[in-house]
Computed example of a mutant assay.
Amino acid sequence: MKKLGEKVYCSKCKQKTNHHILLTYSQESNSTDDFHWHAEYHIVQCMGCENICFVYQYGDEDIWDYVDGQRAWVDDFTVYPEEPKKESVESKLFDKMFKIKKKDFRNAPESIQNLYNQIVESLKMGHDILCAAGLRTLIEGICVQLKIKKGYLYRPDGSKIPDEEDIIRKHDSLGGRIFELYDRNLIIFPQALILQKVVKFGNDAVHRMETPSYYTMISILDITEKVLYDIYELKNHKLLKDEKSDE
């Protein structure tokens, strides 16, 4: 049996393999035509797994490539079933951008909701610097709205950090105020640690014009939305209201 002139995708082997030609139907232009072409329709069999598929082979005077440094006419081979297309990183990001949807935090102050909406729009538009800076501003806005002015600083292991005088005291920095959210049981400790990183990302965006990757920004937004939900929505959950009415 004659071998197909090019490796094509085998749906069973999941890769391009050599194929035997079982049957061929051919067509071609007339010798008197201005444009010359040829086409072959093959039923082929994988030389590895013996799977059967269909291949369309086509060539004309406009299809050429350099072979061993010399210009040569080549054929296009199209196999059916076709090889699955690999989704590029760019297309994945593009799809992800349009899947981002704003959430409605009904119990959050209007200023917090509006800022959150602007952050989501910035991310969808690819304005990563504005998004990172906005997330930092949102965290500070939450602290301001809850009248949180100071808080202890913590190490990742949960121990408190003393100041330069080796005294454990509250700080009015945004880092301290974030940990005060934790101390007031409004967020959990891992969230507080992550929000510290969000603040750093925002600072880097404003002062160094640097931002994390798009996927990191998506992850940060997810965590920030969880924080907004825990602080403003969870205490007003329908099941908690039903529990009170049952008493």
Rank of each mutant, 00 (worst) to 15 (best):
M1F: 12
K2L: 12
L4P: 01
K7T: 01
K7S: 02
C13K: 08
Q15D: 12
T17H: 01
N18Y: 08
H20I: 10
H20R: 13
L23K: 15
T24R: 14
T24D: 12
Y25V: 15
E28H: 15
N30T: 14
T32Q: 08
W37T: 09
Q45G: 01
M47F: 01
C49V: 06
E50F: 07
C53F: 00
F54C: 01
V55C: 01
Y56G: 00
Y58C: 04
G59Q: 05
D60F: 00
E61F: 02
I63A: 09
W64S: 03
D65A: 10
D68F: 08
G69S: 14
Q70A: 09
Q70H: 07
D75T: 11
D75V: 00
T78N: 10
T78S: 09
V89M: 13
L93V: 09
F94E: 13
K102Y: 02
D104I: 06
D104M: 07
R106N: 07
P109A: 15
M125R: 15
G126K: 14
G126V: 07
H127I: 03
L130Y: 11
I139N: 03
I142V: 05
V144Y: 15
L146V: 07
L153Q: 08
D166I: 03
K170L: 12
D172R: 15
S173D: 14
R177L: 14
I178W: 04
F179E: 05
L181M: 05
P190N: 10
A192E: 06
N203Q: 05
T211I: 13
M217S: 09
L239K: 10
S245D: 11
S245L: 13
E247F: 08
